[in-house]
Amino acid sequence: MRPFQYTRAPSLAEASNMTAGKDTLAIAGGTNLLDLMKLQVETPDQLADINRLGFAEIEDTDNGGLRLGALATNTETAVHPRVRSDYPVLSRAILAGATQQLRNKATNGGNLCQRTRCFYFTNIDQPCNKREPGSGCGAIDGIAKLHAILGTSDQCIATYPGDMAVALSALGATVHISGDKGERSVPVRDFHCLPGDTPWIENVLEPGEIITGIVLPAPVGGTQIYRKVRERSSYAFALVSVAAIIELTDGKFSRADLAFGGLAHKPWHDPRVGECLLGQPPSDALFDKAADILLENARGFGENDFKIPLTRRTLHAVLSQATEDAA
């Protein structure tokens, strides 16, 4: 690890000031950042430790929703009684990710900001437009099994690796952010960016902005499923994952909130996929139509070509299961 200065941020305002420059990074759980610092993918001059600034609570909101403090750990969130009862898709998504040791340390804010696990990004001897703009993308003609099939660019085909944010996208959660210009909130669905020509920009946080919380809307009920397909049954990143909140009324879909992991540079939410189900009775043909819409612009890069049929089948399986559970 390169030498750096460690400073415990005395206040949120001071943490914003410190991280407004490029050379200082905020550290919370540190499970991803310290890993990347050991690999010299991240080489900050200073770390601003934000762990003692509060905003670690999980508390009810006035309208019946739930506010998850950015510094609450993934474990505290997944096992919270209200998350388990009212937002089970979120508990399931968190529990499907990483290991207990990592979830005990990783925070909700940090989870949203975690970097891709693309092998080219994490290896400083390889080209990567995300790590070193202009150096090229090794994955496009290289080892691309984990890589994206939707929303890619000729600069970057990396995926956002997390599970939690996929469930938050299906739930329509909102990210609360504090910075030197004040506070603002951004829907989780708009928080992460596609790579485009600027793959090093992964989310909408401006320099000096810090996530303070994630707000879940009032519970919607329904059948909630998080289905994660991976190469081993535990502690592996998603090849494909589906977060689904499904409701049937009189045998027809009356709610279909769907988000997908492992497919893109961000949790993938295409409102047309759920909309095509609404008002229709479940059928294989309907599920195929939903998959057709989702995968309309899907593109494989050789090693990850399998993700296209795998996504179709996983969506099919989730909708079949949800339909049976809801019936």
């Binding site: 460690y6 540190g30 430790d49 474990t75």
Partner: peptide, 12 residues
């Protein structure tokens, strides 16, 4: 709680 001691700084 159990954690990976390799991924955290003693100073924290």
């Amino acid at each position: 709680v159990r954690i990976n001691s390799c991924l955290t700084l003693a100073a924290m």
